[in-house]
Write a protein that binds this DNA or RNA. Structure first.
Lengths: 197, 197
DNA sequence: AGCGCCAGTCAACGTTCGGTGACTTAATGA
DNA sequence: TCATTAAGTCACCGAACGTTGACTGGCGCT
């Protein structure tokens, strides 16, 4: 999305930041393979060569984007007894997708980016590292207790799977409003059970 | 995997079938974008042009592969009260990945292929159609009852998410044997709860 | 044996990709 | 005002992709 046709003021830091944000937006809505350097460059209104210059390689850009996202830890702030409901609401209703700069879904952004690029061989290394450091491990630490790693995997699995199912089902568009509410309710219960139990 | 260096006997049907199987294997272990026509062709020991000739386009080949897989309905054969445990075992332990021609994971193959290519923009259309026709809908029908679609989404979500988590965690290699068992047990319980409840 | 058909090959096309190095242009300090 | 530095552009590379059309060679039929 080109925001302005006027020539960008020559400010390396600002441009670098703009590239990072454009890339973040792209990686939020397309997989690693489907995001092209030229796409990101066009969004910023800059030549693609500049991205290589600032960030090195595409993979480095991807890492920088992931680092720029809020830590997965933020998923868990809020009362523990609401965890399931908060997450379920965030996934079933629209706050996940849009990926605005500071929207309600900001805390989901890192996870969303990871989900988008699941299956991309080129991004696998980065993904595995990041998903552990930023998502599984914090979640397990937050859950606590002896079986925390196991329960974290389960909770994360349900969250990821539902987010993907949402993609596959085009935002659960085939479900009516009451069914959607029921889906959110049931997901909240299941999720809460996974971390409480 | 080239099985034989001797020139393939001139049999269009057999060759077509061989291409289909090689493609199925490829799509099982790599995403749509990461599977190249030349890769498949090399596996069969045939020129890539032949695939275009037989199947039309890459997307058509992908559709043909999905059609050649067992219907998702097969996931559900077996006693209903074992559903959770069967699926959990299949996902936590190794039967999903290998994707041999007639292995125990054969019934998971269609789902696995779908999961691999989640996120690929080029495969999205096919994926959405297939995942509904072959996976969500049969599962909902099997579950039955008023909230079947909702519960099917949840069960499918957990299954998909755990399968993906398995990818991200390199086969849950960081978990010990007892933790793995605990993971399978908890997943079985959660899954069973989603369809029974 | 000769012929025609068809499975399969080959070389090439046009595109797109990520990345590089040389260039131009704008801002800055003396 | 002018030279220097850094920001940004431009043309291009080599590789990979899916796909095409012309070609080749072996098989079966008469």
């Amino acid at each position: 999305m080109v925001l302005c046709d006027a020539p960008r003021p020559r400010n390396a830091n600002a441009t670098r930041q703009a590239i990072l944000e454009a890339a973040r937006e792209r990686f939020c809505s397309d997989s690693y393979d489907d995001v092209g350097m030229r796409d990101v460059a066009r969004d910023v209104g800059v030549d693609a060569a500049l991205i290589s210059r600032y960030f090195g390689s595409k993979e480095d850009l991807f890492v920088a984007v992931l680092d720029s996202c809020k830590n997965g830890r933020d998923l868990m702030d809020g009362p523990r007894e609401d965890f399931g409901e908060r997450l379920a609401r965030e996934i079933v209703y629209g706050e996940v997708m849009p990926c605005q700069d500071d929207g309600a879904g900001a805390k989901m952004r890192g996870l969303l980016i990871l989900l988008r690029s699941v299956g991309s061989a080129k991004a696998m290394d980065v993904m595995q590292r990041t998903s552990n450091n930023r998502f599984f491990d914090p979640l397990a630490a937050w859950i606590g207790g002896p079986d925390a790693p196991v329960r974290a995997r389960l909770a994360a699995g349900l969250i990821m799977g539902m987010a993907i199912g949402r993609e596959l089902s085009d935002g659960y568009s085939s479900l009516g409003e009451t069914q959607k509410a029921e889906l959110a309710r049931r997901m909240a219960v299941a999720l809460q059970g996974l971390i409480d139990n």
